Structure formats: C-alpha cells, structure tokens
Simulated assay, not measured.
Amino acid sequence: MNAHEINIWWLFGFALLGRLLDIFSTWLASPTLKLEGNGFIRRFGWPYALLTILAAFLTFVQPGFGVIIGTVSYILAFSNMRSAMMVRYAGGEDALLDLIRKNASFKLSRSLIDTFVLPLPMLMLAAPLFATYGISSNGIGTYIADGIIVYVFVITFHKLFQLLRYYWRRYSQRMSLRNSSKPSVSK
C-alpha cells in the first residue's frame, strides 16, 4: 500500500500519537529529565519537549513523514518505558544514576563495539521491509523501514558522541591529575 493512498488524517494521527506517547514515556522514565538522552530537551526542558509534538504536522508536507515520525516515536517510547522500569527498580532517577556511576567500568574498545553491535537487531528488522517494498518506493513498509533506520542512526551517533565526550572528559581528568602530581621546578 502506498502512503499517498492512506487518509492523511490517519497518518497524522499515527505520528501525533507516537509523539505524545514518546513524551509521556519520557516523563515516566525521567520527570526531571536527568536521564533524557536528547541534550536539547535536557537543557531546555519540558517546553522544548512539548514542541516536538509539532513534528507530526510534517505529515501534511509528505505523508511518508507521518509514518517515519510515528515509527521513530513508538520505538523511542518503548525504550523510555523500559528505562522507566529500571528507574523504579533502582529507587528513582538519582538512585539509578548513582548505581550506574558506582558500577561503571569503562573500556573504550568494548564501548565502541557495543555502540555499533547493539543496533544490529533493529537493522535486521528493516532489511526485509526494504527487500519487500524496495528502497525507493512510496510503500508504507519502506517508510516504516526508513523510520527504523532513522532511529538506528540517531541513537548510534548520539551514543558515539556521548562516548567520545565521556572518554575526552576522563582523558582530561587524568592529564590534569598527572600534571598536578609533577613536582614544580623552581630556579
């Protein structure tokens, strides 16, 4: 089925419900946004998060966008709801952050492997959709696969930049400790 053959209001509703579910699940997982992965939302708060609802209106520009936005939003909502359970089990946002900090063992090579291997199941989910509907078609399956691919790339690049930022911070701390422990030479 072609995305242009579906009633535009159904596609808009799909995208809008996905955005609302993503925002609701974000609130469940992190009401204070301490655990929010999106740096803009963490920085600018709930008003900016609510503005992301407007992305659903891109459906009226291109009907396929409604499917892509909805697909990404539903996957994010699933991830947030899984995180919400971990937050509850840990005893709240601060308790989970403390638990992660205390038990974190950081190895760059292992973290890079995780960053690129973890999205593979999602890519494998998109592959049969592309094989069935074709990469350049206007079929609904292609737009769902596009949404999965967008999710995978955004999450992978986000985790990669987060990892590099963390590595750089640790490297800078080690260098400043090393420099501060050297005896000063006075003439």
Rank of each mutant, 00 (worst) to 15 (best):
L163H: 01
I53S: 03
V61Y: 08
S137T: 10
I140G: 00
S25E: 02
G13N: 04
M122F: 15
G147Q: 02
M85V: 15
M122E: 05
L177H: 13
S136M: 12
P63V: 03
L54W: 05
T52L: 07
W9A: 10
A84N: 07
M175H: 11
L17Q: 05
L54Y: 05
I155H: 10
Y166N: 04
F44R: 13
G147Y: 00
D146P: 00
P121Y: 04
V154N: 05
L120M: 14
E36S: 06
F130E: 02
L16A: 15
L164R: 03
G139V: 01
L96N: 01
R174L: 14
L120E: 02
L96I: 07
H4F: 06
G92N: 08
P47K: 03
L28I: 03
N138Q: 13
F60W: 08
F153D: 04
A127T: 12
P119N: 08
L99F: 14
L125P: 02
I41W: 04
S186T: 15
A56I: 09
L17R: 04
S181E: 13
P128S: 12
W168N: 15
F14L: 11
F161Q: 06
G66A: 08
A95S: 13
Q62L: 06
S79T: 10
G91H: 07
V67R: 01
I69Q: 03
W168A: 15
G139E: 12
L50W: 08
S172R: 15
F44H: 13
P63W: 03
L11W: 06
G39Q: 09
T115I: 08
S136G: 13
A131R: 08
S30F: 05
M81T: 09
S111N: 14
I135A: 10
A90Q: 06
K34E: 14
V67P: 00
T32V: 05
L21V: 08
A55W: 06
F106V: 11
S105T: 15
M81K: 02
F153W: 12
N138I: 06
M81E: 09
F44D: 08
N179F: 10
L123M: 13
L16H: 07
G70Q: 01
G141I: 09
F153V: 14
G92R: 04
S186H: 09
D22P: 01
L118N: 12
L16G: 04
R82L: 11
D94A: 15
I69V: 14
